[in-house]
Write a protein that binds this DNA or RNA. Sequence first.
DNA 1: GTTGCAAACCAAAACGTTTTGGTTTAGACT
DNA 2: AGTCTAAACCAAAACGTTTTGGTTTGCAAC
Lengths: 343, 343
Amino acid sequence: MGFQVGEVILIPTTIKDVAEVAGVSVTTVSRALNGYSDVGEETRRKVQKVAEELNYRPSAVARSLVMKRTKTIGLLISEMMSDKSGHHFTFEVLRGLHDALAKNGYDLIFANTTTAKQRLLSYLDFCTERRFDGVIVMGIRLDDPYVHEVTESPLPSVVIDIPLLSKHCGYVMTDNIHGCELAIQHLTSRGHRNIGFVNGHKEAEVSRQRLRGYKDALEKCGLPFEPSLVYEGDFSVESGAAGLEALLSANPDLTAVFFASDLMAIGALRWAQQQGIKVPGDVSIVGFDNIELSEYVTPGLTTIHQRRYEMGVTAANSLVAMLEGDMAQGRVLPPDIVIRGTT
Amino acid sequence: MGFQVGEVILIPTTIKDVAEVAGVSVTTVSRALNGYSDVGEETRRKVQKVAEELNYRPSAVARSLVMKRTKTIGLLISEMMSDKSGHHFTFEVLRGLHDALAKNGYDLIFANTTTAKQRLLSYLDFCTERRFDGVIVMGIRLDDPYVHEVTESPLPSVVIDIPLLSKHCGYVMTDNIHGCELAIQHLTSRGHRNIGFVNGHKEAEVSRQRLRGYKDALEKCGLPFEPSLVYEGDFSVESGAAGLEALLSANPDLTAVFFASDLMAIGALRWAQQQGIKVPGDVSIVGFDNIELSEYVTPGLTTIHQRRYEMGVTAANSLVAMLEGDMAQGRVLPPDIVIRGTT
DNA sequence: GTTGCAAACCAAAACGTTTTGGTTTAGACT
DNA sequence: AGTCTAAACCAAAACGTTTTGGTTTGCAAC
C-alpha cells in the first residue's frame, strides 16, 4: 500500500486518515476543506488543524477521476518549432502560456508530436488517454493530417499561427499582412523600389499570409509585383543566405530584401558580409519575428516584432475562457516595426 | 455523465462499454488488452476489435489511481532559467528531457516556481498533489529554501547544475572545472598573462565551480591569482559590459577576459566595440555555454561548449533508472572548447 | 467414475476523492 | 405535545481502471 515509485514507497496521507484522526466522516473533511457552509465552525477548524498536522494534500488524480476534469492542458508542438532553432520563437510563447495557465490553476503538459509517434497514437488519442481539458497547438504544418483530427474534435483547442475557427477551436496569431506592410512601407520610405522577398516554406500558413502581405503592400505603394523577386526558403539560416544569393544574381538592381523570418535574414546578412556586400550600403535587409538574436548581430537587424509572450497569454486565456463556456475566438495581435542598422 | 469541459461534454468509451459490447467482463477486457495469457485467442481478438471500433482509450487518470503511479515527471524551473533570456540554455535541455522521457512513456509537466507560489504551496506540496513519479530540478538558486525540501524528500529527483547527491536525489552537470581549464589554457597558449574573470552571481553553484576552475587553471599555468582580476556579475548582458569596464579600468594591462556565460561575454563584446576597443586586438574574450547566439555575433565568440541536449537526456535517463530501482547518481559531462573570432 | 489440472473466464475489492440524498438534533412556533 | 425548520453531520455511490482470489469447464490420468 502506498505510492510506488521505484523501490521507494511514498505514503501520502489520504482524506480517510484525516477523517479518522479528526473523528468525523470523509464527507465532512471534504466539505470542511472545500469551504462548504454545512459544517460547523468548530469542526472546520479541527479538520483544518488535523489536515495541516498530517500534511494532507488531496490527490489530484482521485479528484480528476470523480470531477471529470484534470485541470491539465496539452501542448502540441511539431518538430518544426521544437527543433534546435525553435527556441527563438517557441520559448517566449511557452512562458506566456504557462504563466496565464498557472494563474488559472491549469498545468501544462508537453506533448510534442514525437511523443505520440513513440506510442503509435494519434495526437487526439494521446490527448484522450491523458484526459486533457484542452489543447494548445503550435507550429503545425498545414499538411499534417493529425492536427486537424484534434482541431475538429470536440476537445477545446487554441491554435497558434493558423486561423482555424470552429465551435471548439480558436486561434491566436500576429497580423502578418500588416507586418509586411510595415516592412515594405519602411523600405519604400527609404527610397527602395526593387524589393525582394524571401519566404518560408509553403507548408506554413504564415508563409502564405506573408506572401499576400508582401504583394498587398507593394500594390499599396504603387510598385509592381515581380515573381522573380520572390524566393521560397524554409525559415532556416542557410536558406536565407541561399535566398539572397539567388535573388541578387537574378536581379542585379535589387536594393532591398524582406525576409519572412529573422533567422533567414541573419543568414543572408552573414553571407553578404562574407561576399563583401555592404549592408545596408549595397542592400538593405528587413526580417520578421524580432528574435533576441536580431539585436545582437552587427549591424542590428531591422525587423517586424511579434509579441510572443502576449501570444502565449492570449492563447491560454482564450482556452480557459472556452473551458468556462465562452465561444471560441480568433485573436489577431498587432506587430511593430523595430528599426535597427540593416536599413 | 461524461467528461465535462466547458459547456461541452466529451464521453470517452470506458472499459465497461467495451466489456458489454464484447460480451465479456471488464476483467477480461483489461487482461486481453494488456497482453495477459489467461485469455483465449478468440476472445482477445474479439475484444481488440470491439475496442478499436468503439475507439476505446484507457483513462490514464483511473489507471494512475489504482496503479499508484502517474507516469508524469514534474519540471521545476526557477525564474532564473525561465526568464526572457533563459531560453538559450533551458530550451535545449528541455528537448533532451522530453525526448528521453517520452521514449520511456513519461510525460513532462511544467511547474516553474511561480506555479507553486500562485497557489501558496511549497514545490513539494505541489508535487505531492499532482502525484508526480519524479522531479527534474533546474536552475535553482542555492539559497532557495524550498528546493531542498524537494531534493531531501523521498520523491525521486535529479538536479541539473547543482551536485546534490543522496538516496533519492541525483544530479547532472558539466565539468565546470575542466571547462575553465580549457579556456585559460587556450588563452595562455596565445600568450596572455593577465587574464580577468567575470563570474555569475554567487547564488549559483556553477559560479562557485567556475571561480574555482579559474583559480585552479591559473595555478596550473603558473600564473598568480589576483582578486582584482575577478568581477562578480549576474549572467546578464549588461553585467558583462559592466564587468569588462570595471576590470579594464582597474587593470589597464589586461589582455584577456574569461566570462562565466556567453551572454555576459556578448555584452562585453558590444561594449568594447562601442568604445573602440578592438576584439581580439586589444582584448581577447572567451565565454561559457556556447549558446546559439555566440556563433552569430561578429566576431564569433570563442567559448566553452556545454552539451545541453545531452544534459537533458542524461538527467531523464537517470531519473527513469531511479524509478526502476537504481541508485541515484551524479553524472558529469565533459565540455569542449569552441574557438572562434574573439581570441 | 473419481481425481487432478490447466485453460478461460469473472465478481468484487481497491485506489482517493466529490456528491447525493439522506438522518439526527435542537430549538421555534403552534 | 406536536410540528416544522435549520444546522450539522454522514453512509454510500460514483468515477474507470487493475488485481486478487476465486469458479467453471473440459479433458487426461488413474
